[in-house]
Design a protein around this nucleic acid. Structure first.
Length: 502
RNA sequence: GCCCCCAUCGUCUAGUGGCCCAGGACAUCUGGUUCUCAGCCAGAAAACCGGGGUUCGAUUCCCCGUGGGGGUACCA
């Protein structure tokens, strides 16, 4: 029972970075291959030498690798197949499915302009098929007159059963005799694609909606070459928030930008998979292996989708919360080092502690930079106090300093340094001071982290460790003293319990 | 202009003739919980583009509009 192994491909043209639309197409192909035990081929369509570049090719490969979309064959370069493309074009000519066209681009352009002026649809008038005999064409070619090769489109309809749209058909009368080989001997896209897909024995072509109108032409070419076309599936496009085609002005569209922003590759994969595909249930958070297990062609939507970056950010936060510290460690470490907050060796020597820190911070982070930002107080010696935090919780420097000094003294004398002890002690101090625990907790948070938000204060204390915590407290006390001097008139004279001045 | 594709809350979507006066998620807004934030819990507001058919019955099927998108190259 030789059920043919599925072979799919992703064929980006290196004229730009890997963008979300391309990445999603690549993902669907990859998912299908992985799901069905097939082969995923990567082919760079660099036939357009003018606009293609090595740099972009590299960027696309990097993006694929980062997303984890590994290819089984390739990367192949379409430009390497030019000889074969040409041979296929010649086969078409010999078989009578193509003919030589001696019309010059300038002539064609003027005909097109005339048609446009008359509000008419322009289609090639078959001048060289109808008014140039095969013999004459032969002669002119031999004489060296340049010619392009055009596919002779037969009458009838070209249709196919699209795996996402169902049956789609085009009347061949709508399709002009398109050029397959330029007068300089280079192949045109549609021919090159068909030739390559045939050569690579591609069984399923999953690509963007924008290729629908190329499909009938390609089917014509398959047939003209005596081959059966593959299965086609046209996935909907991804649009910007305004419903227009996604472009730079919509913000980040290149995959690399999301990497820089500290997104998790598997979160982006999850998000992209859900854009245009649905598992048919209410579940939304999937790891890559689950995606492979669940993916199916039937779940692909017909409607184009708008890229909602807010949901992407939320999803990333979900994956961050669920990911193990083990898995996050290399990603976080890299950024911590890049930010100059810690050095790699130091982090390596206390991995268990680092893991604890990551587990502590990942819950309230939505991207890796959130973790890095929050991690600073635990790793660096000095911290900055955020303006807002200071204004809110260090409003009355003298009073705060007095309270924190009391706390510091008690903490310094502690035998144990665990959450229970630390909390009990703080509450005791608050009691003795005749104030609410919060009046101690918030200023303490500012003292330790410089921020108004952090994990539970006692967890912070424990993770930070006694020495560093006490040093921070000392630094805070000094800072508070400076503040008192700078603002001597600030209301330290406030009666305890009185509402703070606005 | 012509051809093609598409059409459920602001957004992503479930729904395949009755279970739907339409379910989930993001975002928004309430309230609760904790030392802050995140979270979590409870709740609110929010959609079947319009018109014709078909049918006992249409979000679901058909047609026509409308709207959006794509294509219309010796680009890919």
């Amino acid at each position: 029972m030789a059920e043919r192994q599925i072979r799919v491909r992703f064929a980006p043209s290196p004229t730009g970075y890997l963008h979300v639309g391309g990445a999603r197409t690549a993902l669907f192909n990859w998912l299908l291959a992985r799901r069905r035990g097939g082969v995923f081929v990567l082919r760079i369509e660099d036939t357009d030498r003018e606009r293609s570049s090595e740099v972009m090719t590299r960027a696309i490969l990097d993006g694929m690798e980062w997303l984890g979309l590994s290819w089984d064959e390739g990367p192949f370069h379409q430009a390497d197949g030019v000889e074969r493309h040409r041979r296929d074009a010649l086969r078409l000519l010999e078989a009578g499915h193509a003919y030589r066209c001696f019309c010059t681009p300038a002539e064609l352009e003027s005909k097109r302009a005339r048609a446009a002026g008359a509000q008419e649809a322009y289609r090639y008038d078959r001048n060289c098929l109808l008014r140039v005999s095969p013999e004459e064409a032969e002669r002119r070619a031999a004489a060296g007159q340049p010619f392009a090769l055009r596919c002779h489109v037969p009458e009838g309809v070209s249709a196919w059963e699209d795996v996402v749209h169902g049956r789609i058909e085009f009347a061949n009368a709508e399709i002009e005799d398109f050029i397959v080989l330029r007068s300089d001997g280079t192949p045109v896209y549609n021919l090159a694609v068909v030739s390559d897909d045939l050569d690579m024995r591609i069984t399923h072509v999953l690509r963007g909606d924008d290729h629908i109108s190329n499909t009938p032409k390609q089917i014509l070419l398959y047939r003209a070459l005596g081959q059966e076309p593959p299965v086609f599936g046209h996935v909907p496009m991804i649009l910007g928030p305004d419903g227009k085609r996604l472009s730079k002005r919509h913000g980040a569209t290149a995959i690399g930008e999301y990497r820089e922003q500290g997104l998790l590759p598997w979160a982006l994969v999850n998000f992209l998979a859900l854009l245009g595909w649905s598992p048919g249930t209410d579940e939304e958070i999937f790891d890559v292996p689950e995606l492979i297990a669940r993916f199916s062609l039937e779940g692909i939507n017909k409607k184009s989708a708008i890229f909602d970056s807010q949901k992407l950010i939320w999803l990333n936060g979900q994956h961050l919360t669920r990911a193990s510290a083990e898995r996050l460690e290399p990603l976080v470490t890299e950024r911590l080092v890049a930010a100059g907050i810690a050095n790699a060796d130091a982090l390596r020597t206390r991995r268990a502690w680092v893991h604890g820190l990551i587990d502590l911070l990942k819950v309230r982070a939505r991207n890796l930079d959130d973790i890095v930002r929050q991690a600073r107080p635990y790793l660096a010696e000095a911290i900055d106090y955020e303006q807002e935090a200071v204004q809110k919780h260090w409003k009355h420097p003298a009073q705060v300093r007095q309270r924190l000094a009391a706390l510091r003294q008690r903490y310094a004398g502690l035998e144990r340094w665990d959450e229970q002890t630390l909390e009990a002690e703080l509450r005791a101090v608050a009691d003795e001071l005749g104030t609410a625990a919060g009046k101690l907790i918030h200023p303490l948070r500012v003292s330790l982290t410089g921020m108004a938000v952090s994990p539970g204060i006692f967890e912070v204390l424990v993770t930070m460790g006694r020495e560093l915590a006490l040093r921070r407290l000392d630094a805070a006390l000094a800072a508070l003293e400076r503040r008192e001097r700078e603002a001597p008139s600030s209301p330290d004279t406030v009666v305890p319990g009185a509402p703070p001045a606005a």
